[in-house]
Design a protein around this nucleic acid. Structure first.
Lengths: 112, 112
DNA sequence: ATATATACCTAAGAAAATTATGTATATAAA
DNA sequence: TTTATATACATAATTTTCTTAGGTATATAT
């Protein structure tokens, strides 16, 4: 796990990117997918995730589809056309930012 | 300029890295150096910078040296041995984080 | 029975930033 | 000469974003 301050500001970008590459995903699924893809290094907390999903929906970049699975509720989120554009912009901006930080911190362009 | 949320959580790392590579720097100098190195893409705001410098000093990772330049005050910061270690840790953690985010967002390992 | 996993949610508080404001000197431009 | 910009420090109110903690409920494994 990274120190919490590092992850700040990346939540929306992560959500939008994953939903951009998938037909639809529900909240809990997003937490599991991120955990899996990052080997547990990034773990989305529910207290941050759900309010952000609600905000993105209110903003019109996500739409929802509530489904009953057995007796449990599951709320699927899918990205809207506006959202897809925003996802692209955010990912591109982040790529640029990474490039800038890599230079500023004197890191090798492709270490890892 | 990047959207403000992106830069969040990187301030301490940037300060520690620059002071790690320099004998001493003062606050205003840090803002100018970062602006210069990033082509204006990252601009440290004084409201964020000064409180953070004070906190890092209180934490023992920075030490200060106040100098009179003409009739103006200038407060030089230099990094302590503890600070040098912290700078290293933070930069390494950020390098790892960049690697993880690059994969998560599906970016090329070295685009730019 | 109990713990863990799934699955949603909100609210109080903390952390970290922005924005605004204040003080003061030096210098360049109008 | 007065006005704007640059230098140089600082704090305070507010906003944003996240953590921590709590709540509800079902399913499954121990």
């Amino acid at each position: 796990m990274y120190s919490s301050e590092l992850i700040k500001g990346t939540l929306k970008t992560i959500i939008l990117k994953l939903l951009s590459d998938s037909d639809e995903m529900y909240g809990y699924e997003l937490t599991q997918r991120v955990k899996e893809l990052t080997g547990g290094k990034i773990q989305l907390t529910e207290g941050a995730l759900y309010p952000t999903l609600h905000a993105l929906e209110a903003q019109g970049v996500l739409s929802t589809n509530v489904v009953n699975v057995g007796n449990r509720i599951r709320k699927y989120y899918s990205i809207t056309p506006t959202g897809k554009q925003l996802a692209n912009d955010k990912v591109n901006e982040y790529a640029d930012f990474i490039h800038t930080m890599t230079f500023l911190l004197g890191l090798k362009p492709n270490m890892g």
